[in-house]
């Protein structure tokens, strides 16, 4: 996380405020809302910004550091920058047995980045991730919220085209 000077502040939309109000009654203490709010922020902005963490800390009556510790413990939160397409290739055993390494290598080549990196324009981040519970359909990957299964290099090419980038 960049320790740059920050002046912006983050606010949830009115629609979100209503959802948050409805959730409050479900958790016995406000801290329980941290995860739901991290998700909302990420969904709305493509990442969880430091400003968002400050706002979440305020709503959940805790410190920004505490929110940060959760956002880094749980690996799905994007803390570096907004990303358009989060490409996550399963490289656990079942997918590996079916060739996930070559799928990952193909993506690395096509996107010009290594697993773990993001493209400079912030459109793609490529990650090798652990089992996504789609073991019967490997090799597979998740792009944002969708699963793409029984992958081949050809399927990848078509998908990347669909995402607006060859």
């Amino acid at each position: 996380m960049a320790a740059t000077e920050r002046k912006k502040t983050f606010r949830f939309s009115e629609k979100r405020e209503k959802e948050i109000a409805a959730l409050r009654g479900r958790y016995e203490y406000p801290q329980g809302l941290i995860m739901p709010l991290l998700w909302m922020a990420q969904y709305d902005e493509g990442w969880v910004s430091p400003e968002a963490m400050e706002t979440i800390a305020e709503i959940c009556e805790t410190s920004p550091a505490w929110v940060y510790s959760l956002a880094t413990f749980y690996t799905m939160f994007e803390l570096e920058r907004p990303i358009r397409y989060q490409i996550q290739v399963c490289h656990n055993l079942s997918c590996s047995l079916n060739g996930s390494e070559s799928i990952l290598a193909h993506l690395e080549k096509k996107l010009g980045i290594r697993a773990g990196e993001a493209t400079e324009d912030g459109r793609f981040r490529l990650s090798a991730v652990e089992c996504l519970a789609s073991c019967g359909s490997g090799p597979m990957m998740q792009v944002n919220t969708e699963y793409y299964e029984q992958l081949t290099p050809e399927k990848i090419d078509a998908l990347l085209e669909e995402f607006g980038r060859d």
Partner: peptide, 27 residues
């Protein structure tokens, strides 16, 4: 009935880690 989404941590399948996670702690 409340759905609580995890955030990417295998250990939250351990039942007490799962409880901590719902409470807004590390799993």
């Amino acid at each position: 009935c409340t759905i609580h989404r995890g955030g990417g941590a295998y250990i939250c399948g351990e039942e007490t880690a799962l409880l901590n996670s719902i409470e807004g702690k590390k799993g």
